[in-house]
């Protein structure tokens, strides 16, 4: 560009910064404050909570859900949803265990599980992006289908293999840290790098922010949409392998309802269900909050039924805060509010 186009125009719009903006503050640190409060509370009231071995246990127990939630974050950032990840856990676990029993070496069995998950995700993504079907419906369908597939392959019975060659990915330790925790850390590093440091990540946000504008700005929207489901599927496949390793068996019922925990972690972490807004770090914190909450409540001997009550309230509270900060005039529906009061 030459000098001709420099310094056009005159008017400068004053941009006022609000002295304190709750929304921005909450976006940045709100969820961390919740986590810190929760940890302090548990450290004080839950016996043995603050012991290293317990903290490592929490880390291990959240790893499956956290890995699922990492993939789910990509999907939700594009404005989609993936209900099938829980069923993918079962299918990939079953396939990996059967392969291991058939003599496939451990690393290959693990990768096979991931590939199976990625293939399921690819189907979700292609159906959503290229057939234009609603992701909610597509993944509701594949959720049911894949669960059925897991039951069919196993004839409804768990396949137990006490000599499972990849059991260490669920139960082992490396340098004193549980292996699934290390795997989780790697998944989050990769996810963070993709979202924050690559063009791909910006495109994911763009698709969620406004698909039409993204298309006209030069984003291959369909490809991006397909890829996030593929990534979510691969994450679910990996989670399925870890789950199978931990229980040292292939369970056709594995992962039932896990998709909802993953969604809860994502939303707790501040990612908008409408897409385009959120952070992968938030998802990790969201998963930790859910994990700390359940472990702490167990340590405090809170009955399981009550735990569910508390978890439900926490999720709704988190979303309520999220929607409160989004509050604008747009929540009014002129369609209905325009009419006069009902006549008697």
């Amino acid at each position: 560009m030459t000098k001709d186009t420099e310094n056009l125009g005159r008017a400068v719009e004053p941009v006022r910064r609000e002295p304190f903006d709750f929304a921005r503050w909450w976006d940045r640190v709100g969820i961390l404050v919740v986590l810190a409060a929760l940890v302090v509370f548990m450290a004080v009231f839950a016996p043995n909570f603050a012991r290293i071995d317990n903290l490592l246990n929490i880390a291990r127990s959240i790893s499956v859900n956290a890995i699922l939630a990492a993939g789910m974050t990509f999907v939700i950032l594009t404005g989609g949803i993936d209900l099938s990840v829980g069923s993918i856990i079962a299918v990939s676990g079953v396939v990996a265990v059967i392969a291991a029993i058939a003599g496939v070496p451990a690393p290959a069995a693990v990768i096979l599980g991931m590939v199976v998950g990625a293939a399921c995700g690819l189907a979700n993504g292609a159906l959503s992006a290229y057939m234009g079907l609603a992701p909610f419906i597509v993944t509701l369908g594949t959720m049911t289908f894949l669960r059925g597939l897991a039951y069919t392959i196993t004839a409804g019975q768990p396949i137990v293999s006490s000599a499972l060659n990849f059991r260490d990915i669920g139960n082992g330790y490396f340098a004193g840290i549980p292996v699934p925790v290390i795997v989780m850390a790697i998944v989050y590093l990769v996810a963070w790098f993709l979202l924050e440091r690559t063009r791909y990540g910006r495109h994911v946000y763009a698709v969620g922010g406004n698909p039409e504008a993204a298309k006209l700005a030069g984003v291959r929207v369909k490809r991006i949409i397909t890829s996030v489901y593929l990534f979510a599927g691969a994450c679910a496949g990996l989670a399925g392998v870890i789950f199978a390793a931990r229980v040292v068996s292939a369970q056709p019922t594995a992962g039932t309802g896990y998709e909802l925990d993953a969604i809860a972690a994502v939303v707790l972490g501040g990612t908008a269900l409408a897409g385009g807004r959120g952070r992968i770090v938030g998802t990790l914190i969201g998963s930790v909050i859910l994990g700390v909450l359940s472990t702490g409540l167990i340590l405090m001997n809170v009955p399981f039924f009550t735990q569910l009550l508390i978890k439900g309230v926490v999720i709704i509270l988190a979303v309520a805060i999220d929607s409160l900060k989004q509050r604008t005039f747009s929540f009014r529906l002129p369609l209905f509010s325009r009419s006069a009061p009902p006549r008697s």
Binding site: R199, Y205, A206, G209, N210, A213, A214, A217, G276, R277
Partner: peptide, 21 residues
């Protein structure tokens, strides 16, 4: 608003999106 912008995203992201490569 419907075809040009990512309304919730920063001005920088909106401007940079087509030149990231």
């Amino acid at each position: 608003k419907e075809q040009g912008l990512f309304l919730g995203h920063s001005v920088e992201d909106n401007i940079a999106i087509s030149s990231l490569d």
